[in-house]
Computed example of a mutant assay.
Amino acid sequence: MLNYAITARRIDAHGSVSGAREAVVQLDTSLGGREDALNPVELLLSALAACMIKGVERAAPLLGFDFSGVEVRIQAQRQDSPPQVIAISYELIVDSPETDRRLELLHTNVRKYGTISNTLAASMPLSGLVRRA
């Protein structure tokens, strides 16, 4: 079993920072919002995107999958009362000469072995598709 830890702290009324190891991320914790930092929902979606990209990096060598780039586009639906994300959809865009069948195989591996995608899929609808860049 792996354990993870971060530390987050308030800087002022306009924002906070979060960090692990040598990495630091600016957080939008301001009531007015900030353009230069990610808000909590955007951080959640970024974690999913990072999980999927890392999944491609992990699965590609195992599958002998040829690719030169990956992009993930994610949208979330949030309800107001109670405030929560109720659904997430994504588009996994892979720059690759591989066949459509192999592209789908990569997508299956990314979904099956993703820590964040599995966690989110267990708590809400998580749907998406893979396509060629």
Rank of each mutant, 00 (worst) to 15 (best):
S81F: 05
S96H: 08
L103A: 15
N39Y: 03
E98S: 06
F67Q: 14
T115A: 15
E104M: 13
S18N: 14
G69E: 10
M1P: 10
P83W: 07
G69T: 11
V72Y: 00
F65E: 07
P83C: 07
A49S: 14
Q75S: 04
S89G: 06
I93S: 14
R132H: 05
R78T: 00
R131P: 10
R101T: 13
D12Q: 09
S96V: 15
N109P: 02
L106D: 02
P40V: 01
G32Q: 08
D12C: 13
H14K: 10
L103F: 11
A60Y: 02
T7P: 04
S127D: 08
S81A: 09
R132L: 12
I74G: 00
A5L: 05
V25D: 00
A20N: 09
V130E: 01
M1A: 13
F65H: 09
S16K: 09
D28R: 05
P83K: 08
T119A: 14
R34C: 02
D28Q: 06
P83N: 07
T115Q: 13
R21Q: 15
L63M: 11
I88Y: 00
A60S: 10
S123Y: 07
V110R: 03
H107F: 03
L92C: 05
V17I: 14
R21W: 12
D28H: 04
R73W: 13
I74L: 07
S81H: 08
V94H: 01
G114S: 07
T119H: 12
L38P: 01
G64W: 00
S68C: 03
T99S: 15
D28V: 04
R131L: 14
A133W: 06
D66H: 14
R111W: 06
S30T: 09
Y4E: 12
A76D: 05
E57G: 00
C51D: 10
R132G: 11
R10V: 08
M124D: 00
L63T: 02
V85Y: 03
C51R: 01
S127I: 13
R101C: 07
L31F: 11
E22C: 06
R102H: 06
S127Y: 11
E42G: 03
V24M: 10
T108G: 05
S18R: 10
L31N: 10
S18P: 09
T115E: 13
M52G: 02
A8D: 04
Y90S: 10
K112C: 05
D12I: 13
R10L: 12
